[in-house]
């Protein structure tokens, strides 16, 4: 096809590259669902990866969750005080943390920490031919490296999100307790009073989707790393940026779908 201008050529080439990338990512994701039900399951590696992802993210998740709980409570109090509605504070915090902040904060932290780690690890294995070495030893690298890591993030991130919500609520309780005498049981009861089963279900579903996204994006970027050490850095960076972008889109879509269910 002849191009009239250089701009047309660049645009066409850019679009071509973009759609090729989308197609390749789609195929990569589709392969996961094909391979995940096939033997061997590499359960030991899934457990190892879950342990690595979960345990190593725990300090950061704890600290962030705790601070989010305190800061959110501190900043909400003055507005509620204006309306004489400070007694609603636990419910407000409960809704905000369980429905939105817990899963989202955990996903963003894990996208940065776990996603970049997976991207860099697999990227480095790719450029040093370790993935090829697996393939020539009749070991399926997709099954051993990708499926195990994606399963690990999909299982671990919902657990971390629930833990993050719990810690954030505890931080909020400490702040409430510092201002007024309140028991922890009363605070938690009040916080969960307005939260339905659908809210918890939506929150866990969101975390599962976020976990899958972080795993699949990290492994995809790592598995397709090129151009030596520079490519490894780029894979890690792109894994974080793309995962975060997709997490925000998924957040909006899942909340919208959950709201439709609420009307039925």
């Amino acid at each position: 096809m002849a191009f009239r201008t250089k701009k047309q050529y660049i645009l066409s080439k850019g679009l071509d590259e973009y759609f090729k990338g989308v197609h390749s990512a789609w195929k990569f994701t589709g392969l996961f669902f094909k391979e995940v039900f096939k033997r061997p399951f590499h359960l030991r590696e899934v457990i190892n990866q879950s342990f690595e992802i979960g345990l190593k993210s725990l300090p950061l998740i704890s600290l962030t969750g705790f601070i989010v709980g305190i800061v959110f409570t501190k900043q909400s109090r003055p507005s509620l005080e204006d309306f004489g509605a400070t007694s609603w504070l636990p419910s407000l915090i409960g809704i905000a943390i369980v429905k939105a902040l817990g899963p989202l904060v955990t996903a963003l932290i894990c996208a940065g920490k776990v996603g970049s780690g997976i991207g860099a690890e697999l990227g480095s294995m790719k450029v040093t031919e370790q993935i090829d070495a697996m393939e020539v030893s009749a070991i399926n690298p997709y099954k051993y490296l990708v499926v195990t890591r994606v399963l690990a993030t999909t299982i671990t991130i919902p657990v971390l999100a629930l833990y993050c919500s719990f810690v954030a609520l505890y931080g909020s309780y400490l702040n409430v307790h510092a201002e007024e005498t309140s028991s922890m049981i009363a605070f938690y009861q009040s916080a969960f009073k307005t939260i339905s089963f659908l809210d918890i279900f939506t929150s866990v579903t969101k975390s599962i989707v976020f976990g899958f996204t972080i795993g699949i994006v990290g492994t995809y970027k790592g598995f397709n790393a090129t151009q030596g050490t520079r490519g490894v850095g780029r894979a890690a960076n792109q894994a974080v940026v793309l995962a975060m972008f997709l997490i925000f889109i998924e957040e909006v879509l899942i909340v919208q779908v959950a709201n439709w269910f609420r009307f039925f």
Binding site: T128, E129, Q130, D132, A133, V136, S137
Partner: peptide
Amino acid sequence: TLRLRIGFSFQSSALYD
């Protein structure tokens, strides 16, 4: 099965680090 009958020694050794 065929690959198990072929050994491949990489230039970079490609050891799992």
